[in-house]
């Protein structure tokens, strides 16, 4: 091929020579968002399928989710350039903007988490909450009644919103035609499955009954298996796309980000825990915390690697 020298006389901070849009805050936010999606979907699905929560883990899940979601939103806030204008997210809804969808979804998630949490809480929990609420204990009572009365709709909302949240974390990156590594319709489902498995993994680290543990672990395996397939499809899509997409894929498969991608995302995050889970379930090996920890490491790594690597490859670099 004919050699080309390109001199781009632009030196805007954060844009040149390579885009440095997003640092640690966004991967953290996407990761926590994914976990929250998992914490909403997994317990709700189990309950919808008739398994009443018994272990403390499942009861804690919605409250934990609310805390993690707040941390994630905190990270997102830290990333904003114009922090004092954050309220602007809630003066508009822009249907073409995943960021807009996300900010509204986040707002809807909290009440659902509260209803879900109240509905799942045992007697001890409810008493504790009433004490905590103090003069507002009446409100707790009313909400608890609502959560009990509308149990199925709340569970369904939890599944739908959780899935929406999970998908959104991927779409945030996936709808950027300018960034070849991100511009894939599969990023939504991929981040959803990854989020579900990370949520499930976090549950596995909490106190669960053995039955619950098996159910969650089976769910986790399913999510991971699906994630593996989606990841394969995503990479194949890139590698067989145009020149820009091939360049993008090569940064993951054999380029600058390959070591992190293969070691942390594929091996540690998917391959190893799948094998461990399979061993535990099929061969009845004792449960260890290793597999879920690896899943969480892999889940964060997937986002961190994709966010970082995706900024490296844009149209501007491809003549």
């Amino acid at each position: 091929m004919e050699p080309v020298e390109i001199d781009v006389g632009r030196h805007n901070p954060g844009v040149d020579p390579g885009l440095e849009l997003w640092g640690w805050e966004i991967p953290v936010y996407l990761f926590l968002g994914g976990i929250v999606a998992g914490l909403m979907v997994v317990p709700a699905l189990l309950e919808l399928r008739g398994r009443k929560p018994e272990g403390a883990g499942l009861r804690m899940a919605p409250w934990l989710a609310a805390v993690l979601l707040s941390l994630g939103m905190g990270a997102l806030f830290l990333d904003l350039g114009h922090k004092l204008y954050v309220w602007r997210f809630y003066l508009a809804f822009r249907p073409t903007s995943p960021m807009s969808w996300g900010s509204w979804i986040l707002l809807l998630v909290y009440p659902v988490l509260v209803l879900q949490g109240l509905g799942t809480a045992g007697e001890h929990g409810r008493r504790f909450l009433r004490t905590l609420a103090g003069p507002l204990s009446g409100l707790v009572d009313r909400l608890t009644a609502l959560a009990d009365g509308w149990r199925r709709p709340v569970l369904t909302a939890s599944v739908v919103l959780g899935a929406g949240l999970g998908v959104y974390t991927g779409l945030l990156l996936g709808t950027t035609p300018a960034r070849m590594l991100w511009n894939s319709a599969l990023l939504g489902p991929l981040f959803l499955t990854s989020g579900l498995s990370a949520g499930a993994a976090l549950l596995l680290l909490l106190p669960l009954t053995t039955e619950e543990r098996h159910a969650v672990a089976r769910f986790d395996m399913g999510a991971m298996g699906t994630e593996l397939v989606l990841l394969k499809l995503y990479l194949t899509g890139l590698a067989t796309g145009g020149e820009p997409q091939r360049i993008a894929a090569s940064t993951l498969l054999g380029g600058e980000w390959a070591p992190q991608f293969w070691a942390l995302v594929v091996f540690a995050g998917l391959g190893a825990p799948l094998a461990l889970d399979a061993a535990e379930l099929r061969r009845h090996r004792p449960f260890t915390r290793l597999a879920p920890v690896l899943v969480l490491v892999g889940g964060f790594s997937l986002r961190a690697v994709l966010v970082a690597a995706g900024q490296d490859v844009s149209f501007a670099l491809v003549p």
Binding site: P13, L19, L21, L80, H82, Y85, M99, A178
Partner: peptide, 27 residues
Amino acid sequence: PDKCTGCKACMAACPYDARYLTPEGFV
């Protein structure tokens, strides 16, 4: 500027890297 939160979604979306974040924080 008064509506911009500096979330940078637009910068990620721009195929031409034509946008930047000002020192004041908006795009």
